[in-house]
Design a binder for these strands. Structure first.
Lengths: 365, 365
DNA sequence: CTGAAAGCGCTTACAG
DNA sequence: CTGAAAGCGCTTACAG
């Protein structure tokens, strides 16, 4: 009987086959000294459910009861157990957000946009960072789904198959944010990095540059940078020479600056014919600008420099840095708005939003 | 009766009528189609508890059972419900971390240190940001405690009384990280911002500066910057003149750069006798350096400039920026190590750790 | 508006 | 090593 028990035996069948009436002896298992809803109810002389209602939907309780309950809550220092509430209602107010990195300003600003929007609706953000590792992303997604969130947000449109399957089958709204380009699992907000690269190509061509280098940092992991390079390369095809430099190092916040700083003299020495460098991000570009400043290298006379992201510092360098501004905070806000709409049972204006970008031409090109 | 019911009329109402003595008719309330542990148990032909054990402590189950269970888990795509587990065990593996802001690199690096350490032990970080609002901090702390975390981390030693009370009474280990100086609620990791200010005072005195300005950004909120100013002021007392400038604006990432950029010409115009400026952070100092560069203002000839934090860019400017390096990642790691030790029932080496700082003298002073 | 009962999906505590 | 029972602290669904 043991091995073949099978299907129907939902062990949920807790038969209360006690000999007597039904009252089994109680064992207590409480480990925390925390005040419970039942204690508040006892304190206020009401039923537990009344406390629940007074807390979650005050209008559904008479003012008299409500004030008695509020007093008891206050006096006992009651803090509701969210896990119990979530388990009972099958609803959490925690929204997981998965990003590749926190040491990249870009994600931080998107996150801020998300947090503002989400908190305004009484939700909490649960942040996970993958370190640009899609395997880690899969593990994170699985764990986070265990909290039965009402929705989820994840950076990027590229995931391992199992991640996509997991998210698709979770039966909750999902927003993939950052780039556009392929069909999302559910909803998508971002910009086309391919088009951004192409836009920079047009700009550099228009200013007369014909021997252009793209400088990336660990491009293997950063596929959005690869997309920008692809856009650049295709747009330049037949019109200018392009070369890709993939640099290593520079982990952590501000690390990109050091990479740009180190790259500039290297590249100029090895490929002296270069007339323009498009860096994968503004941090690297700023590092290169600072290096040029220290070494007395003329920008853009000797070499033009451009970046990507539109960080505030781009407007403060001498010369100012040509860059592409991505509306990061907007991405966060829009992504959150879409998700919250769906969570609330409404249909967002659109499920796929391209927020675009702006090329800010500075003195560095 | 129909109109007032509302709420959650659900789908799968599998009624399992039982006709026994005490067994009341069962109502089912499942709302998600998610696979449960009971279903896995049924699938594997074992008791639910065996599944629980196979997942949480594989060694406690025979290999035969384990592989049957693992197969069922795999096949059904089972994702454990963390809320149920947490409720039953009164244990979560989520550690809340409260910081004032994410748009400040400094906190991001501390957070990274925390995340690395915490994830390595199988815990998850739940991030909350207060926007430098201690009222918001109190609300966040209360909500986060509702998840019955095994411990908690919060930036700073200053909180509203109710926050401190709440945390103290939570009966879990708490680490306050960032600054040292006063008695913590439980544990503390950080550095003395007063001493950091004093160290800069000594440096500026040694280099011959006697008319020194401290430039802060929204100092009302940033009490750590106030501490640095206090340290500076006291150390300079009787030896040099000090003046405090409290600037507004510059919200968000990189906003400080703009503030420094704007401040420099203002301050030089209004208080031309100044010979040195100590900025509350490197971002502002870098903004000022870039402005000096553009305007042709001699640094340090006309005005010396110093910052605080030790961001990588400080080494790349011309001249290089004098700054105080704070070991941010170390703060995060140490704070996490302390907390994890206590969670594991061990006593950390110390409950109060001063990680110190290093003054990096550059060409800007 | 108010409440008694049952159940959410797990784990603990006990027993074999 | 394995399992039956009870309970974690809430909320839903139903009834007055």
């Amino acid at each position: 009987m043991r091995g073949t028990r099978a299907r129907g035996a939902t062990a949920d069948e807790a038969k209360q086959a006690t000999g007597e009436a039904c009252a089994a002896p109680r064992r207590t298992r409480r480990r925390r000294a925390a005040v419970t809803l039942n204690e508040v109810a006892a304190g206020a002389g009401v039923a537990p459910i009344a406390v629940s209602r007074a807390l979650n939907n005050p209008a559904s309780v008479s003012p008299a009861l409500r004030s008695r309950i509020e007093q008891a809550v206050e006096q006992l220092g009651y803090v509701p157990n969210r896990m119990a509430g979530a388990l009972a209602s099958a609803r959490t107010r925690v929204i997981p957000v998965i990003v590749p990195s926190l040491s990249n300003v870009v994600f931080v600003e998107v996150i801020e946009g998300i947090q503002e929007a989400v908190e305004a609706q009484g939700y909490q953000m649960l942040l996970g960072s993958t370190g640009y590792d899609l395997g880690h992303e899969a593990a994170l997604a699985a764990t986070l789904l265990g909290w039965a969130p009402p929705g989820m947000m994840v950076a990027g449109l590229r995931h391992e198959t199992r991640t996509a399957t997991l998210l698709r089958n979770a039966g909750i709204p999902i927003v993939e944010f950052m780039e556009t380009g392929r069909a999302p699992i559910d909803m998508n907000v971002g910009l086309s990095h391919v088009r951004a690269g192409a836009a920079m190509a047009e700009h550099l061509l228009a200013r007369g540059y014909r021997r252009i280098g793209f400088v990336g940092l660990r491009m293997k992991d950063d596929y959005r940078a690869r997309q920008r390079y692809d856009g650049l390369r295709r747009q330049l095809a037949g019109k200018a020479a392009v070369v890709l430099f993939d640099r290593e190092g520079g982990a952590g916040q501000g690390g990109g600056q050091q990479v740009g700083w180190d790259a500039l003299p290297d590249l100029l020495a090895i490929t002296p014919a270069l007339d323009a460098l498009f860096f994968a991000n503004d941090e690297m570009a700023v590092g290169a600008l600072l290096r040029a400043r220290r070494d007395g290298t003329d920008v853009p006379g000797r070499i033009a420099i451009a970046g990507f992201n539109g960080l505030p510092i781009a407007a403060l360098t001498t010369p100012t840095l040509t860059t592409i501004v991505s509306p990061r905070k907007q991405i966060g806000r829009e992504a959150a708005a879409m998700l919250l709409a769906r969570i609330a049972g409404r249909e967002p204006t659109t499920r796929r939003l391209d927020v675009g970008f702006t090329l800010e031409a500075g003195g560095s090109t």
